[in-house]
Design a protein around this nucleic acid. Structure first.
Lengths: 247, 247
DNA sequence: ACTTGCAACTGGAAATACCAGTGCCTCGGC
DNA sequence: GCCGAGGCACTGGTATTTCCAGTTGCAAGT
């Protein structure tokens, strides 16, 4: 078996520091300890630490100033979208029932989706729509395999976005798709409501076929809202089951 | 005067490699030269090169595999949102008239904005709305100073997004705001249409005050579409003027 | 012809030394 | 006593070197 689940030291360090920042252990506005000292504390070389810090800097969590130091920033003010994944995964893993951030993420996805569908109405070729239908038929056959289903689901979303013919949207999709695929905790959201999801997709496809952008945006928004609500409810059920089982 | 415009070597290297990838000089699917050789070619230490590559990896432009090599990826498939800035800036700087990507970015911003405004209708407190009005009055006084106006504009957008009470949306805003602020070429889009922009903001504020989400989404979408079109036209004018001047 | 294993690549990590900004703190002049 | 200039002790940034650890492919032995 090839390399598996083996994170590099730099990644591990990045995750650790990020968790401490998002968790509040490293307060926003405070200064990070010096690289030399911190490296020793964490048990890694200064080099590894630096690459971790560099990564956090691109994520908008810290800011390094040559000669001065490295300051922890407020992620609400400067954190990038990539953080959603970590935050949502945390809210899922903590077993907390609120699931606030996951709900907000779903809301964002929903809002963008309804607008995307409107664009698809206007711009997609008949060929692209046919391809979407084919994909959906194929995806239906994967309902039993959660992992494969998730990949198919992401691929479907990509095709939809691509049919909107807007590169900016496609790049945004890439970011979201990556974090969803990377965070195992997020997979739950895909496995918990397969049947209803497929049914909704079919309805959306019909909507798009009608080529009425305005209506598509409105109706799809409503449909997806229902779907998300059901999915969240299902996730809560599962969490409670799991929580009361091992006792 | 303190440090100014002084990019670190790693940043310079990152930009250079990114430009070659986005420009197609380094074809997607091909392998990057080995780190040792490439470092010498670029005239930097292997360490600096590595940090540049690490950054490109987080942006989804390349993929490093221990023992194998570093492969160039197709940014359309795996590039993150952050790339929009570089791509848009390039399309602006190249003087090309199409401005395709900038238009697509504006479209994305517009779609999200109209949905955000709908949320603001539902969730913003009266205090938040009042604050928005105050901010707008203040921003009006800055119409003469492009730099300050841009910052105020970004701050206004942030307040609007915050009033939607959705953290995921706020993080998305952070990403977009950062790239806009970082790319000088993008500032043009803010300076080119100040008067109309302020007028539009005032109308949007009225819309939100009416507390009718559906209508706000619909009308704001239309208004912003007009504004974006006018701004693009203005940018084209400026580009042509500048293009035919130095001859 | 197939398998096995050993190089010779690749990237990952470390230790060390040095460069370059910042800021405090002291010392000297006023 | 106050104020400013300079130096020193931090900070992060870069370079160099050495070694570790996967991956790949060729080549020798079966």
């Amino acid at each position: 078996m090839p390399t598996l689940n083996k994170k590099t030291a730099a990644e591990t360090t990045t995750d650790r520091l990020r968790a401490e920042i998002l968790g509040g252990a490293l307060a926003a506005g405070s200064d990070l300890p010096g690289e030399r000292g911190l490296a020793e504390t964490l048990g890694v070389s200064r080099l590894t630490l630096r690459s971790a810090i560099a990564r956090l800097e691109t994520e908008g969590l810290v800011e390094s100033v040559h000669g001065s130091g490295t300051r922890v920033l407020d992620y609400r003010e400067s954190g990038g979208v990539e953080l959603i994944g970590y935050l949502a995964a945390e809210s899922l893993a903590s077993g907390a029932v609120p699931l606030g951030l996951l709900a907000e993420l779903m809301e964002l996805r929903r809002l963008v989706a309804s607008e995307v569908l409107a664009l698809v109405c206007e711009r997609a070729s008949d060929g692209e729509l046919a391809e979407l239908a084919d994909h959906l038929a194929w995806q239906r056959t994967l309902a039993g395999d959660p992992e494969a289903f998730m990949r198919a689901d992401l691929a479907f979303a990509r095709k939809v976005v691509r049919a909107a013919h807007n590169l900016a949207l496609e790049l945004l999709y890439n970011t979201v798709a990556r974090l969803v695929a990377a965070e195992p905790a997020m997979h739950l959201a895909f496995q918990s409501n397969v049947g209803q999801t497929l049914a909704v997709y079919a309805r959306l496809l019909e909507l798009v076929r009608a080529r009425e952008p305005r209506r598509a945006a409105r109706v799809s928004g409503r449909i997806l809202k229902h779907l998300d609500r059901a999915t969240l409810a299902r996730i809560r059920e599962l969490a409670e089951e799991k929580g009361s089982e091992p006792c």
